[in-house]
Simulated assay, not measured.
Amino acid sequence: MLNTAEQEAWSFLSKAPHYAAPDEVEAHFGRAIAAFGYDRFCATLINAEQLGREPPTLARRDFDAWDARYWGERHVVHDPCIKLLRKSGRSFAWTDAKPLGDNRARAMWGEASEFGMNDGYVVRVFGPAGHEVLIRMATEATTTDPTARAVLESLATVFGTIMLKHWELQDDNPDYGVISQRQTQCLYWASRGKTDWEIGAILALSPRTVHHHIEAAKKRLGVIKRQEAVMKAGELGLLVKVG
């Protein structure tokens, strides 16, 4: 029989793909990891060559103050977690990284404790088109329960994958205009004879996401075929290179 934490985890894993809004996904993810003692989290979009820069945030709960300190003090320069991230794509706890640090890193851990963050768990999620989502979870506990690691990794992987999907589709329902900026971009490159794969490479999207945007544009333009969408967008003066 599942205990309370396991029930929360199973509930999130089974229902997460069906949540309609990012806020709903965040709320249920937060409840799931809280059952394992993790009360805060942050999901950021990164690339391997940009680990030293503050990345765009996909979701965040109670990480604002620490991140302001972390980047303000340039802790990224001596953070041993960066070493593990560069070395491998495997998930790890802060306690795994601490032995790799120097005196400056130990001072950083001390500051994190002042924020109520004594240990954390880091999961790297690899998405399409070279996207990577970094999920950081923190707890007041001094160590991460070894038996919880696999579950935390599963929860974070599903969470990161879904948040990345929402990020890719964020321009799909514009408040103004005939078609969204992302749809315009896709049709522009389609008018240049580019395939979904080629458009995805140009715009850093998965081919499946490109196809979704073009299908959405077809519906908004009231046409059936891709070429018809390109022609109508051209007639409306929408085929301009955006971004």
Rank of each mutant, 00 (worst) to 15 (best):
E215D: 09
R53S: 08
F12T: 05
H131L: 14
F36N: 00
K218T: 04
T209S: 07
A27H: 00
D62P: 00
I224L: 15
T209L: 03
G234F: 07
K219Q: 09
I214R: 09
K225A: 15
F12K: 02
A59S: 04
V240C: 10
F29W: 05
D62T: 05
K232Q: 09
L13F: 11
L155Y: 02
G37C: 01
D23T: 14
G127S: 10
T184E: 10
S180M: 07
H28A: 11
T143L: 12
A65W: 03
Y188M: 09
F63K: 03
Y188E: 07
E26D: 09
F115P: 03
Q183L: 11
V125I: 11
S206N: 05
A107P: 05
L169H: 10
F41E: 01
R136H: 10
W94V: 13
G30F: 06
G127Q: 15
H166C: 11
V230T: 10
A93T: 15
K165D: 13
E8V: 05
R124T: 04
Q50F: 09
L13M: 14
D96H: 11
A141C: 04
E54W: 02
E168Y: 11
A35K: 02
R124V: 08
A65E: 08
T209P: 01
Q227L: 15
E168I: 13
W66R: 00
V242A: 02
I214C: 07
F36G: 00
F41A: 04
W94M: 07
R106K: 12
T143Y: 15
R60T: 10
R124Y: 00
V230D: 08
E24M: 05
L203S: 01
D102W: 09
S191L: 15
G177D: 06
P174C: 13
I202Q: 06
N118A: 03
R40H: 13
A93V: 14
T4L: 15
S113H: 14
L205W: 00
W10P: 02
F41S: 00
P99F: 12
A156V: 02
E215T: 10
V123K: 04
G177W: 04
M163E: 12
M231L: 12
V77I: 15
A112N: 09
V133G: 03
H211E: 09
N173M: 10
C81K: 01
G200S: 01
I46E: 03
S180H: 01
G234E: 05
E73N: 11
H18W: 00
H78Y: 15
Q227C: 09
A112I: 05
G127I: 15
H28D: 01
R60I: 13
E132N: 11
L238D: 05
A65C: 01
D172P: 02
F115T: 11
T139K: 08
Y188G: 04
A20Y: 04
G193L: 15
S88Q: 06
E49T: 10
K83R: 12
V240E: 08
G89P: 04
I135L: 08
Q7P: 06
